[in-house]
Design a protein around this nucleic acid. Sequence first.
DNA 1: TATTGAGCTTCCAGTCACTGGAAGCCCTAT
DNA 2: ATAGGGCTTCCAGTGACTGGAAGCTCAATA
Lengths: 144, 144
Amino acid sequence: MNIGEVAERSGIPPKTIRYYEDIGLVRPQRSGNGYRAFREMDVHKLAFLGRARALGFSIEDCRTLLSLYEDESRESAQVKAIAEEHLTAIDEKITQLQSMRETLSHLIKSCHGDHRPDCPILSDLAGDPTVVRTVSSLANKAAK
Amino acid sequence: MNIGEVAERSGIPPKTIRYYEDIGLVRPQRSGNGYRAFREMDVHKLAFLGRARALGFSIEDCRTLLSLYEDESRESAQVKAIAEEHLTAIDEKITQLQSMRETLSHLIKSCHGDHRPDCPILSDLAGDPTVVRTVSSLANKAAK
DNA sequence: TATTGAGCTTCCAGTCACTGGAAGCCCTAT
DNA sequence: ATAGGGCTTCCAGTGACTGGAAGCTCAATA
């Protein structure tokens, strides 16, 4: 199976599949003409990766999850631990985004948004505490 | 004022301040010894940038916001439009994260997490539809 | 005065997970 | 014979920094 068909069947673009090979996530064989020759197993692996990535797992997490998947003597606790850690990270991101959302929507509501230059959004960003004063209550670091 | 003091007062690390100069967000003067010489205005600008970044605005948005801030003839509608677009993007991210969160927490609940190898999380990632089957309902692309 | 040591400088490389593009080979159909 | 689409590799760019090396400047101390 060539890369194009694999891409279609796994939902992973060719460029990304090559990248995954580069970093050792899949190891397709090669045909005589130098083309990658994928087996069913590879398609399966790539679809696994696609789903794990869609859940937001990092590439390194995906690598670990794949190896656990292939390890018959794994303990489900190992998998669960990774998932729980990731869930915690997701929750933190959500919390941070909601805090930004909160502040930003307040600011937007307070801005009349017309042809005049007066703007509480800019005033707040400039540090003027008389307007809404909520941004500085945010953690200093934005989402990475 | 040297970069260290500015970093402390603006909350932006020296490395980042130099980076912001590189990309033209601030233009500190120079002293005879080659050191950057910051004025109050620069500290103010950097604090502005810090707050805008904390709200999740991109660097390019920050650049625009700064120039609007300095433009006396701006229309607040321009600022509001940028903020609203950003709010929409935040909402989309939150929605996506919540969808991941939902699926992931279901999977975690269904995994006993002990010494045995059976694991619904892995089964689901592997595409087994008999277990929980929620991941594939996620959009194919993870958060950028 | 000589020497620390902190703080400043520039430049290069790495992060994460791809993605785009160029140059060129391979294969099938006309 | 040629055209095209698909495949190959390699290099560079994305966003927003961050780490590290090599080297200069400055203030304080021995």
